[in-house]
Simulated scan of single mutants.
Amino acid sequence: MRETSLATMNCSIARTVEIVGDRWTLMIVRSLFAFKGLHRFDELRTELGIAKNILSDRLGLLREHGIVEQRRYSDRPPRYEYHLTTAGRDLLPVILALLSWGDAHLMSEPPVILLHTECDHDTVPYLACSHCHEPIAPRAIVGRDTPSPQ
């Protein structure tokens, strides 16, 4: 039986999951953020314990979707670093949400403490309303369809 592609669904979550929804892709993205700061293929491979072919495949997928870009750092032999694009950096709330959920539900003590470099204080990210800045509770948010273009 053929698996249904999420890429054609009229759902932002489904389309995003189609790209970053497997465990290795999100772990690569996590490792490319500044709090890990890894950029080279071998660094990523060592950090994650991932097979070369899987890492190569996932980096290709991330490049194809404009989440990661390659930057050459050596000509002989040709070697590249991988850096998050704006689209990749925009995945930070996803990574932080997974971190927060894991800390709350899977760990007795958080293995990482985040430092907000702008104010030099430890921080715990939370989701807040863009209008009133109050934290968003699961029961305090609903979705509604966008109006159809006339």
Rank of each mutant, 00 (worst) to 15 (best):
M1I: 11
R2H: 06
S5K: 13
S5H: 10
T8I: 07
D22A: 01
R23E: 12
R23H: 11
W24A: 15
L26Y: 09
I28F: 07
S31H: 02
S31L: 03
S31C: 09
S31M: 02
L32D: 01
F33Q: 06
A34D: 07
F35Y: 08
D42I: 06
L48P: 01
G49S: 03
A51S: 10
K52H: 07
I54H: 07
L55N: 09
L55K: 06
D57Y: 14
D57V: 04
L61E: 09
L62E: 01
G66S: 05
V68T: 15
Q70L: 06
R71I: 08
R71A: 08
R72I: 02
P78Q: 05
P78E: 11
H83L: 14
T86F: 08
R89Y: 04
D90H: 14
L92G: 05
L92A: 12
P93T: 09
P93R: 11
V94Y: 15
I95Q: 15
I95L: 15
L99T: 01
L99S: 02
G102P: 00
D103R: 02
D103P: 00
A104G: 07
H105P: 01
H105N: 15
P110G: 04
L114M: 10
E118D: 09
D120S: 13
P125Y: 03
P125I: 09
L127N: 05
H133Y: 15
P135R: 13
D145Q: 08
T146K: 06
